[in-house]
Nucleic acid binder design. Sequence first.
DNA 1: ATTGTCTCCATAGACATTCTATGGAGGCGA
DNA 2: TCGCCTCCATAGAATGTCTATGGAGACAAT
Lengths: 114, 114
Amino acid sequence: MAGRSVDLFQGTLDVLILKSVSWAPIHGYSIARWLEQTTQDVLRVEEGSLYPALHRLEARGLIVAEWGLSENNRRAKFYELTPSGRRQLRVEASTWARFADAVSRVLAATAQPA
Amino acid sequence: MAGRSVDLFQGTLDVLILKSVSWAPIHGYSIARWLEQTTQDVLRVEEGSLYPALHRLEARGLIVAEWGLSENNRRAKFYELTPSGRRQLRVEASTWARFADAVSRVLAATAQPA
DNA sequence: ATTGTCTCCATAGACATTCTATGGAGGCGA
DNA sequence: TCGCCTCCATAGAATGTCTATGGAGACAAT
């Protein structure tokens, strides 16, 4: 059980993607690799989740895509944050922090009130 | 925006409930109140989510129910952890911790690797 | 040249969970 | 008796993630 990865909790993928594309244009496959690497394989994003998510974010105008060539000389779509996407990243990161803190408070509670 | 509550991320409700019932028999309505109170209204559990979740957990044998009378003299179903539920609480709490830590690591990252 | 492996994109379909909306019944106080 | 609060419950919609699958091109090895 020690090394298993964790299924994503619904709603977290978007903010993870927004963060991944917040520095420089990056393609989908690379996003997945970076997330796995950064989290030591705790977060594993399946392609069947990733690409629909990217399309959603693009449709909402939070990221924009452009075709290019990957490091390995392959056709790849590079995504980048729009200004609106950058605002959304801030919002969702702060929402996540509030939420995670609240859950932690519950799980750390040692007794219930009267 | 400051005081808004956060929709639950799918998958977190179970562990919150298991924790809520981990001390003494408690009924559904009271679970919702306790969660709101403990998280200063950040986590708000709707009844349409709560009761189905309780039934799910009961069906899985993680909690057991017994009818009783509430503090206000009303008919209420009191839930309690089973031994199997207590084990599950440990598992899910640890899964949550791993997950939350991984997400935090991503959101705190300041640069992407080569 | 052929084969295999890896990269990269993509879609379909199943599945689980949470939400909104709604209803009802009983206790209690005004 | 009227209204509010407590407590349980279900139906239906919406959403997002997963598994499974496919395809095509780059590159290395044989």
